[in-house]
């Protein structure tokens, strides 16, 4: 039914799409958690209210991504996850803390709210740092040396800042008044981290691998690739200008920092995808080598083609229902 040669590529694309959706969607609600220490008590409630209906579904994209890696590329799954054992554990503990703190902070006795807010922040931070660390290790080919760990520490910090930036963009979009003005200042502070992070990854990636170096800097690839850094640079400049002019009187362009951050992440993602293709474990295992049996992939693909449009439809429905500025979360 499906060409067995094409199936691994389709699943690699699905995996990429899930990771990208995860990074953007959970990115903004992790970012909101990261910004907790800078907000007051009532502001934190409103920030939580802005992500309340979404965070759970956002996190499900991570489960889908790991699921696709697991089912479509079982060999790569084992290689990658055993190499990243410790950062994965840190991320999982972070996700646990963050997910439960979300509920506990509102349901526990009032005196316990502050410690749970602390847990929400700590969980978000652990998750963001661990994911950034894993990104760095992945770029470095999953080998543990002093140099790779140092680089991964840098990407860990960079991703946490990037998440904070998109989180600030989300708060600008979903709130108004004093909190919105605060979020604009957070975004102004965060944009430098984004530039630094993306720059560091861009400089390091070709240096680590001669193959990627050749892929980037040979003619005519360099011409087709050039729009990526150019567009990123232009977008950063526009974001910087916009953040200086926000908030506007009628709240126009409040969407721009968030959307700009999303586009930046998408551009960064495509840069990475271009560099690493066709490898799934960098320089060791290609997409084709790691793929599961075609008949198993085919049966998943049938289900995916039917169900994924439905998932996207009701996800969009949820964002439509909860559009506009965040208000009090209430069960009735």
């Amino acid at each position: 039914m499906f060409d067995p040669e094409i199936l691994p590529l389709i699943f690699a694309a699905l995996l990429g799409a899930s990771i990208l959706l995860y990074v953007v969607l959970d990115g903004f609600d992790l970012g909101v958690g990261l910004l907790f220490p800078f907000a007051g008590e009532a502001e934190r409630d409103r920030m939580i209210a802005s992500i309340g209906p979404f965070w759970d579904a956002n996190e499900t994209w991570l489960v889908l991504a790991i699921g696709i890696l697991l089912v479509a590329f079982p060999v790569a799954h084992g290689d990658i996850l055993t190499a990243l054992y410790l950062p994965v554990a840190v991320m999982l503990i972070g996700l646990i803390l963050r997910g439960v703190a979300f509920e506990f902070r509102a349901k526990a006795p009032l005196g316990h709210k502050r410690p749970w807010d602390g847990a929400f922040w700590a969980g978000s931070l652990m998750t963001a740092l661990a994911q950034g660390f894993m990104l760095g290790m992945y770029i470095m080919g999953l080998s543990w040396t002093w140099a790779t760990v140092a680089f991964s520490a840098l990407t860990a910090g960079a991703l946490a800042v990037a998440y904070s930036f998109i989180g600030a963009g989300w708060v600008i979009l979903k709130t108004d008044g004093a909190l919105q003005r605060k979020a604009i200042r957070w975004a102004q502070g965060g944009i430098w981290g984004v530039v630094l992070g993306m720059g560091a990854v861009s400089v390091a990636t070709p240096l680590v691998s001669p193959r990627i170096f050749a892929k980037w800097f040979s003619f005519p690839e360099i011409v087709t690739l050039a729009p990526l850094p150019l567009m990123s640079g232009l977008l950063v400049a526009l974001l910087w200008l916009a953040l200086r002019r926000l908030p506007t009187v009628n709240d126009s362009f409040a969407w721009f920092p968030f959307v700009g951050a999303v586009v930046l992440m998408v551009l960064g993602f495509f840069g990475m995808a271009y560099s690493f293709y066709p490898y799934i474990v960098p320089e060791q295992l290609t997409i084709r080598e790691a793929a599961a049996a075609p008949e198993s992939l085919a049966i998943i693909l049938v289900g995916t083609l039917v169900v994924l449009p439905m998932i996207i439809a009701y996800t969009v429905l949820a964002y439509v229902i909860f559009r506009g500025k965040a208000t009090k979360l209430s069960y009735d």
Binding site: P53, A57, T60, Y314, A318, L329, S330, Y331
Partner: peptide, 11 residues
């Protein structure tokens, strides 16, 4: 996950 959001906060 998606309908939980609507069930909890969408009434």
């Amino acid at each position: 996950a998606v309908f939980l959001g609507i069930m909890l906060f969408g009434a």
